[in-house]
């Protein structure tokens, strides 16, 4: 099982002929992912990497290949268009990797997502992976993952890999890993992913990595406190960040009290979450929890 992806996921890559799109489409395929189509307007009819047909539109690609997941690498000026094109073609799951989409675009896109039967992961995210299903829809290095029963959710890319790396080196496998994205406006929140993990019979616990900025971690804490059955351990990074400075991610900026790591950590602690003391302790903290469960 795991969440979001499984053996039936059929992946379409928007922007497959670009530098990033082509590199990662190949890497996903090499991991075992069922990449069924690519879309680049104007390049329809080409064949990518021997066996992946390229279409001019998402609509055509869905009709011909029954793709049900879209992975987007389209550059920022065209990304809002790419996301809405996938929504229009009724693709139920979309992961947008693109970094640097204007917030004004994402406010409108998010409104559209909210009234459509679709889940958007990202943008500005590493995507998601289900190791047991050999399904990777994103830019994460596949080789560091191990099938197992810990769910991982984070905002960022390399920090998620760090978490996964620590788990795998201790022999702890992952049911799924999701990076929800580092932008101020994203499609799917921490709380929503936590709920998916809570409902997934193949997940025993969750490693949750948040960061400064906004108050999504507090909303997640609220969800955990009121609903979550499974144990969660959490790390909030960015304690060293000064207020008002954007720490790489557009969303990682302290603009008020609730955006600080202290406030987020306190809310999670209050919700009964095990706090991971340092970024170096992600794996060992999860290990302790697993030992307690079993």
């Amino acid at each position: 099982m795991g969440i979001l992806l499984d053996e039936h996921s059929r992946i379409l890559v928007q922007g497959i002929t670009g530098t990033e799109g082509s590199f990662h489409a190949k890497a996903c395929k090499a991991y075992g992912t069922n990449v069924v189509a690519g879309v680049t307007p104007g390049k329809g009819g080409q064949v990518f990497d021997d066996d992946i047909p390229v279409f001019d539109s998402v609509e055509q690609a869905v009709k011909e290949t029954a793709a049900n997941v879209s992975l987007i690498f389209v550059p920022p000026p065209f990304a809002a268009d790419a996301i809405t094109e996938s929504i229009d073609a009724e693709i139920p799951l979309i992961a947008c990797i693109t970094e640097g989409i204007p917030v004004h675009d994402m406010i409108k896109v998010r409104r559209h997502v909210d009234r459509s039967p679709v889940r958007l992961i990202g943008p500005n995210c590493p995507g998601m992976i289900n190791p047991a299903a050999h399904c990777k829809v994103g830019i994460m290095p596949g080789a560091i993952h191990l099938p197992g029963r810990v769910g991982v959710v984070s905002r960022s890319g390399t920090l998620t890999y760090e978490a996964v790396g620590q788990l795998t080196s201790l022999g702890i496998g992952q049911s799924s890993c999701v990076g929800i994205g580092g932008d101020p406006i994203i499609g799917t929140s921490f709380a929503e992913v936590l709920q998916l993990y809570d409902e997934d019979p193949e997940t025993d616990m969750v490693v949750f990595i948040g960061e400064i900025g906004g108050s999504m971690e507090q909303q997640a804490a609220e969800y955990i406190k009121n609903h979550m059955q499974k144990p969660v351990c959490a790390l909030i990074v960015g304690a060293s960040a000064p207020p008002g400075k954007r720490m790489g991610h557009a969303g990682a900026i302290i603009t008020g009290h609730s955006a600080t790591s202290e406030s987020k950590t306190a809310a999670l602690k209050d919700a009964g979450v095990t706090i991971i003391p340092s970024p170096a302790d992600i794996g060992t903290t999860a290990q302790n929890i697993l030992e307690q469960i079993n």
């Binding site: 984070s154 905002r155 960022s156 890319g157 390399t158 920090l159 998620t160 890999y161 760090e162 580092g182 990595i209 960061e211 400064i212 790390l235 990074v237 960015g238 304690a239 060293s240 960040a241 720490m247 790489g248 991610h249 990682a252 340092s278 970024p279």
Partner: peptide
């Protein structure tokens, strides 16, 4: 960015 923040911490 996330790993960079973690590294600072």
């Amino acid at each position: 960015a996330g790993l960079a923040m973690a590294t600072l911490d």
